[in-house]
Structure formats: structure tokens, C-alpha cells
């Protein structure tokens, strides 16, 4: 039983950590801020999910579960909302897009109806 629990902890922690690392790498490597936001919002969310579940399995008390659930719910709501806010204000600030971007319908619409 303890061996299973340890293996589960290790698997969860390692997957969470690797997604966190990939997310950080994505912020370095991807070409423009929108792509970096993709990496930041998705990888951090799943990475924290893995890490928190690993911590819960390892600690194994109800207190750990409730705190981890609270943190998880907060992260799943906050990470996408934060990236929406950032993408929105970056677009409003006229952020340069990657030169291979095909079309930008948001800029088209704002051109049609001048911003109030």
C-alpha cells in the first residue's frame, strides 16, 4: 500500500514539475506574447494540478485535501482570467504580433467601430 502511494506521489510530482518546466521554457522560446500566454496558462494550470495532487497523496490528511482543492479551484479560475486580462490589454496596447499571423479580426472590428 505504501509502495503504491509512493509511486503515485512520484508520478504526480514528476508530471507536474515537467509541465511547469515546459511552461517556463515556452515563455522563453515561443515567438510572440500570445503564444507565450498559451504556454503560461495551460502548462501552469496542469502543472499545479499534478503537484497539488502529489502533495495530497503524500501527506494524506483531510486538511491537505481541502487546502489543495481550494488552491486548485482558485488556480483554474484565476490562470485563464489573468491571461485574458493580459492578452486584452496587450492587444489594446498594440502589441506586435508574430509575422506569420494570418489574420486579426479583433483589429478589423475595432477599425470598423472606433473604440469608445
Amino acid at each position: 500500500m505504501d509502495a503504491i502511494r509512493e509511486i503515485a506521489t512520484v508520478v504526480l510530482l514528476v508530471s507536474g514539475l515537467s509541465f511547469m518546466l515546459i511552461g517556463a521554457w515556452g515563455t522563453v522560446r515561443l515567438p510572440d506574447a500570445y503564444h507565450r500566454l498559451h504556454a503560461a496558462s495551460k502548462c501552469s494550470t496542469l502543472g499545479l494540478l499534478g503537484l497539488l495532487l502529489g502533495a495530497v497523496v503524500h501527506i494524506g490528511t483531510a486538511a491537505a485535501l481541502s487546502k489543495a482543492l481550494l488552491t486548485l479551484v482558485f488556480t483554474f479560475v484565476a490562470a485563464p482570467v489573468g491571461s485574458h486580462m493580459l492578452a486584452r490589454s496587450a492587444h489594446a496596447a498594440g502589441l506586435e504580433q508574430w509575422d506569420r499571423t494570418l489574420s486579426d479580426e479583433l483589429a478589423e472590428d475595432q477599425g470598423d467601430h472606433p473604440e469608445d
Partner: peptide, 22 residues
């Protein structure tokens, strides 16, 4: 989605064709 973006980050070169859609 995480596996997809991980593949994009870890393989050299970019294959994205990004757009902003409504």
C-alpha cells in the same frame, strides 16, 4: 492541450498558423 503545446515547444522550428478569430 498540454501535450500539444509541449510538443510545439520541444521540437525545433514552429508549425503554428495563428489567427485571431471572432
Amino acid at each position: 492541450s498540454n501535450l500539444q503545446i509541449a510538443r510545439e515547444i520541444m521540437t525545433p522550428g514552429f508549425s503554428q498558423t495563428p489567427r485571431i478569430l471572432r
